[in-house]
């Protein structure tokens, strides 16, 4: 919640005073998440960074209207998504019909196996499971788990219903759960 007020106050500072420090803070706040989001679409770190930069150029251009934007996070992701789709259309010459027809790479963080109490082997299994999820499902799962987004926010960004988001997250969770060992014994066997 504090984050929300923080973003809100940065928005105001940029709009009212063209406050470059607030602009910088906002950039840093969203850089990693937007970069990951864009990377899922364009699969190039450099291109993803350029698109994030374009998003913030856009933000600067419309700075006067910032106070009117209710959820800046959703707004930034929406612009980022559009820029990514534009980029893909331009570079791959085939217009994107739907998210599910796209090759989306989900970046799901599964670091620190010790902390997770899961063996590297199981992590591998989880990664494989995630890779086999439908592209849209993967992207939604990433946005909810990695970016900590509300279902409503994901729905607004991707122009789908909240119910779809809920179902897709449930599918991803079930598929991953089923790939996990059911008992310590099984987990121990796998470890060996």
């Amino acid at each position: 919640m504090n984050d929300l007020y923080h973003i809100r106050s940065l928005q105001e500072r940029i709009a009212l005073y063209e406050d470059m420090q607030a602009y910088h803070a906002l950039y840093d706040l969203f850089f990693h998440n937007l970069h990951r989001f864009c990377y899922s679409f364009v699969k190039s770190s450099e291109t993803a960074e350029e698109i994030v930069s374009d998003v913030f150029i856009k933000l600067w251009q419309i700075r006067n209207k910032l106070p009117e934007i209710e959820n800046l996070k959703v707004y930034l992701y929406q612009i980022a998504k559009n820029f990514c789709l534009n980029y893909i259309t331009r570079h791959f010459k085939n217009p994107v019909a739907s998210l599910d027809e796209m090759d989306i790479e989900a970046v799901i963080c599964l670091d620190n196996p010790e902390e997770l109490c899961i063996s590297a082997d199981i992590i591998n299994t989880i990664q494989q499971t995630i890779k086999q999820l439908p592209p849209q499902c993967r992207l939604i799962f990433q946005m909810v788990k990695e970016d900590g987004m509300r279902y409503k926010e994901v729905a607004d960004i991707l122009h789908i219903s909240v119910l779809t988001v809920r179902n897709q997250v449930a599918i991803a969770t079930r598929k991953i759960a089923e790939a996990l060992p059911a008992s310590i014994r099984e987990s121990a066997i796998r470890l060996r």
């Binding site: 840093d28 850089f31 990693h32 902390e115 109490c117 899961i118 759960a177």
Partner: peptide, 19 residues
């Protein structure tokens, strides 16, 4: 057990490195 592993996996976040 699966539920517990799932919870652990979900919590795994890359430490937020400064940009």
């Amino acid at each position: 057990l699966r539920a517990e592993l799932m919870r652990n996996m979900w919590r795994s976040k890359r430490p937020s490195s400064p940009v």
